[in-house]
Design a protein around this nucleic acid. Structure first.
Lengths: 160, 160
DNA sequence: GCGGAATGGATGACGTGTCATGTACGTTGT
DNA sequence: ACAACGTACATGACACGTCATCCATTCCGC
């Protein structure tokens, strides 16, 4: 505790570069998506998950597991998407507490229209500047960190 | 345009892993910072910039350049930080339009108290899981992408 | 100097995210 | 059977971020 173990200089630089990169990247992606199709990245994520299921319907808790969102964030966001007609909610017969989130036709059209432009933006802003080795390294790095984070979070929630 | 050039599978995986990692990471860092010191990551960023100057004062547009924030976001955030007593605003003598953002004593105390815990969280959640090569690779990758993004953004703002 | 453009900054409206809490239903143990 | 607990989800309050817009001042060409 005496000396709080600052970051080494390379770590500082890497951290700042990373934070800056992510901020710029998501800002641009969000703007592109919003301008071209009226969707946010958050909307896009929800719609992708729904589109990935055969019948375009999921329980909120399944969506939550996939997106790794807070429950209340998801609930609020679904309310807003419902208001805009992108999804609808239905009751769940086999669990009186539960619900279903259902992709509407408008929702399916929106994601279908938005996807090509978004994918193209991700590619041109991000992947086209990287070598395959860098892409592989990024995946490894992200996976390692995520694993580390999840054990850390588990520790404080479930301290055996 | 005919076929919208989807991402390759490795890219898909890397992208999803990256998005997931970043979400979890910032969520945890934000929570830790908030719980331990009542600051958000945004507050922290502003206070760091101010602390990095000799007299703890900056023009808003300088802050904006460093943080790469939207101008109105900065303005709103400064208003909130001012309301909480972390900073104050002063008039700028040599430019009648301008202003100064000044670190208050409370602001300096807050960042001083918050920094060790935050740095430790960044280290333990992020850097301790990575090799020096990975850190270096991350910095290169981030720098490359940022450069790419900035030329792209420049292009559409200033199309010669 | 004067009119127009550019710059520094603030603000209101509105969508978004978090925390704390509420509610209703299911599950489990006795 | 019923109390206790857990799970699925919603909600209100409030902080945060973006967009469009506004105001004041400075800069620049004439």
């Amino acid at each position: 505790m005496e000396s709080p173990r600052w970051l080494r200089e390379e770590e500082q630089r890497a951290w700042r570069a990373y934070i800056r990169m992510h901020g710029q990247l998501t800002a641009l992606l969000n703007r592109q998506l919003q301008a071209d199709s009226g969707l946010s990245l958050a909307d896009y994520g929800v719609l992708v998950e729904l589109t990935d299921t055969p019948d375009g319907r999921l329980r909120p808790f399944e969506l939550q597991r996939e997106l790794q969102w807070e429950q209340s964030r998801l609930s609020h966001h679904l309310t807003r998407m419902q208001r805009r007609g992108l999804i609808s909610r239905e009751e769940c017969p086999e669990d009186g507490r539960g619900a279903f989130v259902v992709l509407t036709d408008a929702g399916r059209e929106a994601i279908t229209a938005a996807a090509p432009g978004h994918v193209e933006a991700v590619r041109s802003l991000f992947f086209e500047g990287l070598t395959p080795e860098q892409v592989a390294a990024l995946e490894r790095l992200s996976t390692q960190v995520t694993a580390r984070i999840e054990t850390a979070a588990g520790d404080c929630a479930d301290p055996a």
